[in-house]
Simulated scan of single mutants.
Amino acid sequence: MSSQDQKPYYFVPSPSQHPILAALGLLGMMLSLTAWLNDQGWGAFAFAVSLAWLLFVLWRWFGDSITESEEGKYGKRIDISYRWSMSWFIFSEVMFFAAFFGALFYARSFASPLLGDLNHRVLWPDFMAAWPNVGPADLVPHFKAMTAWPIPTINTALLLTSGATLTVAHHALRDDHRKPAIIWLAATVLLGVIFLFMQGYEYVHAYRELNLKLSSGMYGSTFFLLTGFHGFHVLMGTLMLSVVLARLIRGHFSAEHHFAFEGAAWYWHFVDVVWLGLYIVVYWL
């Protein structure tokens, strides 16, 4: 009989204060952000406090889950439940990015050609339905589009390499080779950090040298929303892998029981796939 079968049929945690405390932190963030955006002096400070509170609650919450797992309270059914939960979470993220890809597709394939057809020549005779553009009324300050070389291409190489190093680390863990797993996972985290620094440099270059901003028409808004949200997901994935790395160094996980590693790996590979779509659609087409 396997160790998974010897664990409880289904673990039910005791009543916890974490959900209500996290909800209070989210409520505080929402209210303070509203005040901050409306130029209320206390908004920024209250937002920082609420965010710190939420992060503290999440730290305690995930810490409890890790403790329960290490104490052997999670059996096969809990493992299945976590896998389904992570699968649906990633599916929701797919739909999230699909909305932004759809907005970009609509702007390029429908809105721009419509505004540039013969029926609109009387209103905007100088408008060219090329992508990117400054809009039919020419109200957007002129800018240059971001090219695929060199930064986006380097970032693509970084993410693809990180996917390979993460896969090597996973196979090493499954073979119960802990030290190689730690080394390759650390390399994955390092590549994620380098990607974030490169994207920050790309944004500085866009603002200072290309005059490309979030307000630069439909191109600027879709560019920064797609790449910015992807960068945020890279940040979250890097944090997830960093926690997994710390647990791996502390001796957590085994060759048979390491879903936290697998869940973070699923998320990271999803981030890689999204970037490939971004690289083709945003930078090349």
Rank of each mutant, 00 (worst) to 15 (best):
S3A: 15
K7A: 13
V12Y: 15
P19V: 04
P19E: 06
G25N: 09
G25M: 05
L27Y: 09
S32I: 06
S32F: 00
W36T: 05
F47T: 13
A52C: 09
W53P: 06
R60S: 12
G63P: 01
E71S: 07
G72A: 08
M86R: 01
S87Y: 11
M95E: 03
G102H: 05
A103H: 06
R108T: 03
L115F: 14
L118F: 05
P125E: 02
W131T: 05
P132G: 09
P132W: 06
L139W: 03
V140T: 15
P141G: 08
K144W: 08
I154N: 00
V168Y: 10
H171T: 02
D176V: 11
I182F: 00
W184P: 01
G192P: 00
V193E: 05
V193T: 08
F195V: 07
L196G: 14
V204N: 13
L212E: 01
L214N: 05
G217S: 09
G220P: 03
L226I: 15
H230E: 03
M236D: 00
L241P: 02
V244F: 09
H257T: 07
W268V: 10
D272E: 11
W275N: 05
L276C: 10
G277N: 11
V282F: 01
W284C: 06
L285Q: 09
